[in-house]
Design a protein around this nucleic acid. Structure first.
Lengths: 155, 155
DNA sequence: TACTGATAATCAGCATGCTGAGCAATATCG
DNA sequence: CGATATTGCTCAGCATGCTGATTATCAGTA
């Protein structure tokens, strides 16, 4: 049996663990209070004003039941507004507030810095190769999780 | 601003998400009920009989407060016994039961299969390279999370 | 139009992961 | 030896992430 610490699954968990810690540290350093998950949701809504939660979940590969809580907290922080959709009364129309836009603009350098830090042990070329391989593996496994990426812009 | 879906942090989360889903599916298929986290803990205790929880946490890079619950559930399932240590009455001595050893033996093929499946979009060489790059990045970032890997076998 | 099946959101429940605090036991040092 | 610091574990509290169920609404069809 191969040592557990060499298994891709274990490495995935460990790299994610470090990535989250680095993100939170950089963001706090910059004076903001957002998790990686909240940041991704906020940025996706900024790019797609008026999306509903299911579409948002597909855009960033979150489980639909997880989105509810994430959006709750972003609304709580005043970075997002959620109101009933006109087209479909089941759906919620999500939009970033002015405060949310300011937060996104201000937090960007910290987010970019975090990406560099989590790859700091690699050369430029190695970092690019890791990114490429992760994207390739993820594309092949997209349908294997309950929350696959859905690039659809159906509505 | 780079698209979120190309950021290493997002890729880390996504790859981990797929890895967990694949692991759980393969393990359930094989008739077992263990999470990746529980599997890693069980395997580490098997290799290091009598470890205490803090050392175990270091061996697999878990937070010390997370270990409590994981061990609880493994004990609940009868795969582990936890009793007070002789050396140090604060510490808990962890050992895998016979049922735990049987589970580890039986589950191994499913775990190995899961590792292959999560890399199925990559060639043999690419899979090896991804593993190498993840290990290198993780080694450089080890101290950045609250739960770093500690290979120490002090006691 | 009434019925049937899908869909959007939410909820309860469970398992990580983390922060920070508290308790008991051990180690260290004056 | 006794005061102090440290250590192993646990707990409360919060944020993902998931399974499965429920509710409200919509869409398609007889």
């Amino acid at each position: 049996m191969r040592d557990n610490s060499e298994m891709p699954g274990h490495l995935a968990r460990r790299f994610q663990q470090i990535a989250v810690a680095v993100f939170l540290a950089e963001v706090e350093e910059a004076g903001f209070d957002l998790t990686p998950v909240q940041y991704a949701a906020l940025a996706a809504i900024r790019t797609n004003p008026g999306v509903d939660q299911v579409t948002l979940a597909g855009l960033i590969a979150y489980d639909r039941t997880t989105i509810t809580g994430v959006v709750d907290r972003l609304v709580q922080k005043g970075l997002l507004v959620r109101h009933a959709s006109n087209r479909d009364r089941r759906a919620r129309d999500l939009r970033v507030t002015e405060a949310g836009k300011r937060t996104l603009r201000g937090i960007t350098p910290a987010v970019e810095a975090a990406q560099r830090i989590m790859l700091r042990g690699l050369t430029e070329k190695e970092g690019a190769e890791l990114t490429r391989l992760l994207r390739k593996a993820i594309a092949a496994g997209n349908e294997l999780s309950r929350a696959p990426l859905r690039e659809t812009e159906l509505r």
